[in-house]
């Protein structure tokens, strides 16, 4: 039982990082219908921006918001400079995915060119081990869980309580209709990409803090469980991605504790395949669709 409780605790900690990234990824997809694989490399970029700041004496926790904002801006620039012109020319979705894969590789190797291929680290940031609700979590893990919860809450409030949020949801639901209703969809898309880039950046630094040592492959390696979480929750559905992140995190850790740890990543994909077979639109897909119809 002790092992199970701890595994759930570790799963929540891992899931918080996964959820941060997955929600940003999902928001981006929801608003622009582009599967942006560059997202992984942007997470790596955030980790390295964090490293540059840490090397200049800033703490990793203080570097996190700075890196997040920078990656938010880079995301908007990427959309405006690369993706939007292609969309305007009617480029097919599959070709857009390939462009994002290519851009991710280019960015990854630009990072290598500047920072080198060797392992990097912010140093231990975990702090003391605490025991909330019988779980063994470090202060660092708890901080990341709280950070993820705060960002999720902020996103929830943005989406549900503000004019901008409503405009974002309208744009995600039907861009043409939203534009005909007077919504500045381009500006709304920029804001959505900035928000998703912000979450991407936060996830990148949080991941670098969590894994202690990282290199230029950090984001792309993490992209797979993150996409699994986003799809699990119903891609394009921020709340689904939050839940998906937690499910993937907890399932992986419980599998690691009770089954062969070598296959802990596999469990995420087994869940994903089963979910797509049972509920093809993900955990939240059907719920959100029904709400959209009613609203």
């Amino acid at each position: 039982m002790h092992l199970l409780i701890n595994a759930i605790g570790f799963g929540i900690a891992s899931g918080a990082v996964i959820a941060l990234g997955a929600v940003g990824f999902s928001v981006q997809f929801g608003i622009s219908n582009v599967l942006n694989i560059t997202y992984g490399a942007l997470m790596t970029l955030a980790a390295y921006i964090g490293l540059a700041l840490v090397d200049r004496g800033l703490s990793a926790w203080a570097a996190l918001p700075v890196a997040a904002v920078v990656v938010g801006v880079v995301s908007v620039v990427f959309r405006r400079a690369v993706l939007e012109p292609l969309v305007q020319r009617g480029t097919r979705p599959f070709a857009l995915v390939i462009v994002t894969v290519a851009a991710g590789i280019v960015l990854q190797y630009m990072i290598v060119a500047v920072a080198g291929p060797d392992s990097q680290s912010y140093g231990p940031q975990s702090g003391p081990t605490l025991h909330p609700v019988g779980m063994a979590l470090t202060a660092g893990q708890i901080a990341i869980i709280l950070l993820a919860a705060a960002l999720m809450l902020a996103l929830h409030l943005l989406l549900t309580r503000t004019q901008l949020g409503r405009a974002m949801r309208a744009t995600a639901s039907n861009r043409i209709l939203a534009r005909s209703c007077g919504i500045a969809t381009e500006r709304v898309s920029d804001v959505a990409w900035f928000c998703s880039g912000l979450l991407c950046g936060a996830a990148g630094v949080a991941l670098a803090i969590t894994v202690v040592s990282f290199d230029f492959t950090l984001g792309p390696v993490f992209l797979i469980p993150m996409i699994a979480a986003a799809v699990l929750g119903g891609i394009g559905q921020p709340y689904g991605a939050m839940l998906g992140g937690l499910v993937v995190g907890i399932a992986s850790e419980v599998a690691g504790a009770y089954w062969s740890p070598g296959y802990k990543d596999v469990i995420a994909f087994v869940i994903l395949i089963v979910m797509l077979l049972v509920r093809p639109r993900g955990l939240f897909g059907a719920v959100w669709s029904a709400r959209r119809l009613l609203s």
Binding site: N6, A136, V211, F214, D215, G249, A257, P261
Partner: peptide
Amino acid sequence: IPADAVSYSSVVERVIATNPQVLIFSADPQ
């Protein structure tokens, strides 16, 4: 263990429970 996972906490907890004196270990730097 898989390489480059977000966390190995559950595995670590399991290994600690067996109270080893030494780890015979092989993994990449990260």
